[in-house]
Design a protein around this nucleic acid. Structure first.
Lengths: 344, 344
DNA sequence: CTGAAAGCGCTTACAG
DNA sequence: CTGAAAGCGCTTACAG
């Protein structure tokens, strides 16, 4: 590679000062049109590369937004991130992604990295057990945070997520309306706000229908397709086997349906199955999966907008924005004696 | 937020120079043990945050590696990235992710960002139509590149991917061994090296078995679960409908199986279906999917290792490393008259 | 409309 | 083992 071209190289070649060149490249009206053109032309032909680190050191704006979630491979987060990405792109912010896999130290080290790089903001779905102090550390160091999907009490920042308790109560009520009285819950955990809220909605709906909650009918843990698949065996051995099951997420439901089919139990025929999230795959699954649309896109957009507002100077405020979920009834929950492969 | 603590703050408080503090924090043996301890203690209690931009401006090392692929949501890339992430984590490199969605300008703008941030290296699965000059631009500006999954001729850098032509010929031969003579190919495109190579393997295997390649039996395009689902309708109307189908990827195959089931055609019973990639889901799918393990983890590891070697000073070299794929036979391709829901 | 100069927060020879 | 000083490549008042 040839000699590196910097602002001063251009300035020298054109007989100008670096100040003028700097202003021109950022389209300042302070610089005469003709001068600006000469400068831009020179920058283009010389292969000049703007050094953002230097600029950022001076301005303490980096143009970087960090995004940290449990696992990007999970379509639930994927759909949120797509929305976040679109919003941030529009503001020409670079976004840096990280999976924490619910490992606090991994999340913490990402947080440190963002602090060290002088990121402008952070969007995160906090790992299980995230202390409010971690979030305040960021805020105290001029790194505004917006939370998605999960909440951390005492963090002092805004959170955006679906109304999980309400959404889950919708599905369970739907199953009750379909005539089911013995309904299991597969997946989730007490350790996340999402898990707690969804379980709460499940309990609420049962209670309202005068059905007792049976703790052994909540198979805790599964949160992925694979663990949903594995849970099928456990489910099939449940005492007084339930004739309906609602899952913590679509991924768990899809895995569970694979597992049940493998064991010869046909979802949508022998047993009613519901998911949660309404990921893209739910509608085309076999059978098409009844689920709850949880507004991932809206969550992503609102979180990104809120963060951008913070970057623009809006003060921090602890609040929770719940996006209203919607029930999507498909054939997995509406039992027929018919051939499961017939059109829905 | 209180006064910002920097190196000089610590130096002042302790009556030392910034040079000593800087060395101590990076564990230089030049600094006396006792001094080093005092310095680290002060850094800890004062909430000092290391400014990587400043350091990077001085050293021109950023500790950042950029990773750019078509779409992280695709489990195929997910598995590669997981391996890359593990390798880079070990070297304490921060990695910055980007989806290009095969949009050249999006990829180019990411490349510019990496250049501006002074990234240390780049791992990419180039977007369709990526000119070799884009990659040389990076290389010419001290940004070493390693390519995964796809190749760009004339780029002058190393590429890592599965041996797609060979792998595809394995599955097709397997179908032929199972007695099939009319085998369709669903998905992929001539525009990527992956698409071309997999189609080539399909053609090769047919030819070797003395079967004519019928262009109308290659349904080009689909590369996602959803488009695989949509392709089912098209497939079912193919002239002289084939009794076996091999797909560009597992995702396409899984979507196609949903679509076929929806239409009452049972994969693994009425028709043989194969995928490619052996993603995690393939083994638990219903029916379990015959596919080709394409060594995603190995691709990711080798690419990351090669990049790290480049960072350590190894010169660039245009070469292609092909990872040997392996056939994984499951029940989707072995037809039985039996109930498809019986154990595999 | 343009320029001279200071400074962002580090690291790195170079001295001692 | 520790310090004084220069410099990485920008931007930003401040002058003119």
């Amino acid at each position: 590679m040839a000699q590196k071209v910097k602002l001063s190289t251009i300035a020298e070649r054109l007989g100008l000062s670096t100040a003028t060149v700097s202003l021109a490249l950022r389209d300042s009206p302070l610089v005469a049109e003709a001068t600006r053109e000469r400068i831009k032309e020179e920058a283009r032909t010389s292969g000049y590369i703007y050094n953002r680190r230097a600029a950022s050191l001076r301005t303490s704006k980096s143009g970087i937004v960090g995004v940290c979630v449990h696992d990007i491979m999970n379509p639930f987060y994927g759909e949120i991130l797509k929305a976040v990405e679109d919003e941030l792109d529009r503001q020409r912010q670079t976004f840096v992604l990280c999976n924490h896999y619910d490992d606090l130290s991994k999340q913490r080290s990402f947080l440190d990295t963002m602090l060290q790089l002088g990121a402008d903001g952070l969007i995160m779905s906090p790992a299980i057990g995230t202390p409010a102090s971690d979030i305040r550390l960021a805020e105290d160091n001029d790194l505004p945070v917006a939370l998605i999907a999960r909440t951390v009490e005492g963090s002092g920042v805004a959170s955006f997520r679906g109304d999980d308790a309400y959404g889950m109560s919708l599905v369970v009520r739907h199953l009750i309306d379909e005539g089911h009285r013995s309904i299991a819950l597969v997946g989730g955990t007490e350790q996340t706000s999402t898990g707690r809220d969804r379980a709460q909605g499940y309990r609420d709906a049962l209670r309202q229908a005068g059905i007792d909650f049976r703790p052994e009918w909540w198979i805790q843990g599964p949160r992925s397709r694979h663990s949903g698949f594995d849970a099928a065996a456990e489910f099939l051995q449940l005492p007084g086997r339930p004739d309906a099951v609602v899952c913590f997420s679509d991924l768990v439901a899809l895995g569970l349906m694979y597992g049940l089919s493998r064991a010869g139990v046909r979802p949508g025929v022998d047993i009613a199955v519901c998911g949660y999230d309404d990921i893209d795959e739910a509608a085309i699954a076999m059978p098409p999966l009844t689920t709850v649309a949880n507004g991932q896109t809206e969550v992503g957009q609102r979180a990104a907008d809120a963060l951008l507002a913070r970057l623009a100077g809006q003060p921090a405020e602890e609040r929770l924005e719940l996006i209203k979920p919607e029930l999507r009834i498909r054939s997995s929950s509406v039992l027929r004696g018919a051939d499961p492969s017939s059109p829905a």
